[in-house]
């Protein structure tokens, strides 16, 4: 039987961590873009687009991410479309992230005082101008801490993609365990790596919140 050093284990886990990071970034950026589209459909659109986005958000917030991954992976297969694990993982996580970010950001836009809409309207600005020059600059400042905070959920959410066979950190942990028979060491290291990814994000979210709230200064 082969002997594995701790370094062998760690090295393999770190190599797989790259895919956790890539998947997190893709989910977060893609989810941000789709989420922004949903946000504008929700607050600026007509009744149909508002209803669509509301149901979209409720659907993705109201079902487990794991089910969404299964549906993306196996569901499309039913139609004869062969979906590789990385694609299913990417699609499901992007859509899931988008739902949450759209809802977080909607709250931030609605947190901007009503008087800001009225003042800008009374100066003759149209909807798009109000959004671009008055509302969004203020909403963005409110949105930064919870958005960074949510990125932690995205990183941890990527762990679920191991179940459909995408080889990221968690899946690598299982594979390495099967080879080394040292589950405690392996999963301990896996947890530490996740922590090393998430902790700075949580901390920076808290720091941003303090900084942006300090003395209610908005600049």
């Amino acid at each position: 039987m082969m002997e594995f050093s701790t370094w062998d284990i760690l090295r393999n886990l770190l190599l797989a961590t790259r895919w956790t990071i890539v998947l997190s970034l893709v989910s977060f950026l893609g989810g941000g873009i789709v989420g922004a589209l949903l946000l504008f459909l929700r607050i600026g659109g007509n009744r149909i687009s508002t209803a669509f986005t509301r149901y979209y958000v409720e659907l993705f917030q109201g079902t487990p991410l794991l089910m969404q991954l299964f549906l993306a992976f196996f569901g499309l297969g039913l139609f004869g479309i062969n979906v590789p694990a990385w694609l299913a993982a990417g699609i499901a996580l992007v859509l899931w992230t988008a739902a949450f970010l759209a809802e977080i950001w909607r709250g931030c836009v609605e947190a901007v005082a009503r008087g800001q809409w009225e003042a800008s309207a009374s100066l003759g600005m149209g909807y798009v101008q109000q959004m671009r020059y008055v509302i969004l600059p203020q909403a963005l400042k409110v949105a930064i801490p919870p958005t960074v905070g949510f990125s932690v959920q995205v990183v941890k959410g990527t762990a679920l993609t191991s179940i459909i066979g995408f080889v990221e950190l968690s899946k690598a942990g299982t594979v390495v365990t099967n080879a080394t028979f040292q589950p405690f060491t392996v999963y301990g290291l896996v947890a530490l790596i996740y922590f090393a990814l998430c902790w700075p994000l949580s901390k920076s979210s808290q720091a941003l919140e303090r900084k942006l709230n300090a003395a209610h200064r908005n600049h």
């Binding site: 005082a113 009225e118 100066l123 203020q138 908005n218 600049h219």
Partner: peptide
């Protein structure tokens, strides 16, 4: 553009 308005709460753009 013809009628300006001043509000009780000022409503200046804080940013």
């Amino acid at each position: 553009l013809k009628v300006g308005m001043i509000f009780q709460q000022f409503n200046l753009f804080p940013h």
